[in-house]
Design a protein around this nucleic acid. Structure first.
Length: 451
RNA sequence: GGCCCUAUCGUCUAAUGGUUAGGACGGCUUUCUUUCAAGAAGCAAAUCGGAGUUCGAUUCUCCGUAGGGCCGCCA
């Protein structure tokens, strides 16, 4: 049977880092097996779902380059299908209308907790004649009277077993037209012939409930694979309080390829550190997915991003920063960039710097010495072709030999004159990247500051 | 509280029934040096604890311990 997997976000918020990683793993698995990846929007919760989130999720997936197959499926457009199954289940007595109120359910749970029992709803309406046609909510009939094991073979974790006694009469739908999560998921996975359900570990406890629904329907469940969670620095499930999480929040700082590369390593290992998702797919195996949660480590992301930034084509780099830059300046920047927003540090490549005159002074040298040094440099630069780096360096070195071998006295004031910064690429590189007139003008301006 | 999952350097992880327990990020040191960055060289840094199986266990089993997840008429 050909592999068919799905990514199933609910449009109640933007695409979160954890969901994106789940989406990526599904993509990798589908790619590896030449299978299909379906995008299914789980918008059964009318109150919380919003079209704007759906759009945002789709944009995020596109930005990441996670491609799905075929049309987008929306649960809200499949209501009649759920109704059909619901009617069947009700008619066959495998589901029933529960009449308990939320308040009663809370009280039941509280009592169970006090008695140190598993909190769950054991509904006494499942065999009663009360309100067969309507009620508060539709539930699945679950037999909790005898010890019965519910087990499945998780493709990542091996056999996981639950005792049926600890499971509620599973809530299926609020009414015939309003399915609930566990039910809608199972129906869709059956209808769409999903072969592997790859999702977060937080769904392990939903799995026995869903298995019960498969049983009631007489269907064989797909293969389940539960991914380890991504953790914040406090080792708890990554959530809003750990900082930026929406995928699009990363777009300003990171390249999508870098983010994908990083995400791929949270739960799986590959033969090299830097690789594309296509390369990952070749090596991907569910059996190799880790079992324990991984902490989101931003430093590693920064490093991976830096590797990608360096390999950027000049034209792509310009696109990223939104304006043209001097070609020769690009490698000087990409070699130093971790996050894209660090770009501002290189303002001197597109504007004349402003700085305090004091910054021009090299170590303990005098104001007069610095001024002389700059004047000598200016005279030298005027004569030279500035695009020959080797010659430039040779001449400037010769100049510093005249300053008692004090190269700092030559290069430091030049750096500041050109950039206005304490830290920058080599002045020689900057000079050859900039326009000659611009260089001379910046040096003159520095000399004036010292006058 | 109930059920379930997990456990190797700070972090991501590799490996094996016998290894000096390997790599990467980060950190530190040295080098280069006009400041960064990069590069080069190097250092520190881990098998949660206790039993059992075994000639031998970090690896297998059990029991603890710790961390995490779920326990909705959310998904």
């Amino acid at each position: 049977m050909p592999v068919k997997v799905r990514i199933a976000p609910s449009p109640t918020g933007n695409l979160h880092f954890g969901n994106a990683r789940t989406a990526l793993f599904n993509w990798l698995f589908a790619k590896k097996h030449g299978g299909q990846l379906i995008l299914r929007i789980e918008d059964t919760d009318l109150e919380r779902s919003d079209k704007k989130y759906e759009e945002s999720i789709i944009n995020s997936l596109r930005w990441l380059g996670i491609q799905w197959d075929g049309e987008i499926v929306r649960q809200s457009q499949r209501l009649t299908v759920y109704t059909q199954y619901l009617k069947e289940l009700l008619a066959s007595g495998k589901a029933f209308w529960c009449h308990h109120t939320v308040k009663e359910l809370d009280a039941e749970k509280k009592g169970q907790m006090e008695r140190k029992e598993a909190p769950r709803h054991l509904c006494d309406h499942k065999n009663s004649e009360k309100g067969k046609e309507t009620g508060e909510i539709i539930r699945l009939v679950v037999d909790q009277t005898e010890e019965k094991k519910l087990s499945f073979d998780d493709a990542i974790r091996g056999t996981i077993e639950f005792n049926q006694r600890v499971i509620s009469d599973v809530s299926l739908a609020k009414d015939l037209q309003t399915p609930l999560y566990n039910f809608a998921v199972v129906i869709d996975d059956i209808d769409m012939a999903i072969t592997h359900v790859i999702r977060g570990e937080d769904h392990i406890s939903n799995t026995p409930k869903q298995m019960l629904i498969y049983q009631a329907l007489g269907k064989t469940p797909p293969i389940f694979a539960h991914l380890p969670l991504i953790l914040g620095s406090d080792k708890s499930k990554l959530s809003k309080r750990h900082g930026a999480l929406d995928i699009m929040d990363y777009a300003k700082d990171y390249l999508p390829e870098a983010l994908v590369n990083f995400m791929g390593f949270l739960g799986h290992t590959y033969s090299k550190d830097i690789l594309s998702k296509e390369e990952m797919a070749k090596e991907f195996e569910l059996a190799k997915v880790h079992k324990s949660g991984a902490i989101f480590n931003i430093q590693k992301l920064n490093w991976i991003n830096a590797q990608y930034v360096r390999q950027l084509a000049p034209s792509d780099f310009e696109k990223l920063i939104g304006h043209n830059v001097l070609k020769a300046a690009i490698p000087l920047m990409t070699e130093r960039l971790e996050k894209l927003t660090d770009m501002d540090a290189f303002h001197y490549f597109w504007e004349a710097p402003s700085y305090e005159a004091e910054l021009l002074i090299w170590k303990s040298s005098s104001r007069e010495d610095v001024k002389k040094s700059l004047e000598a440099s200016h005279a030298l630069l005027e004569k030279l072709e500035l695009n020959n780096k080797d010659e430039l360096r040779k001449e400037l070195d010769k100049l510093s030999a005249g300053q008692a071998g004090n190269r700092g006295l030559v290069y430091w004031p030049l750096r500041v004159a050109l950039t206005g910064e304490k830290m920058s690429p080599d002045p020689v590189d900057i000079i050859s990247a900039l326009d000659k007139e611009e260089v001379l003008s910046r040096v003159r301006s520095a000399i004036n500051k010292l006058s």
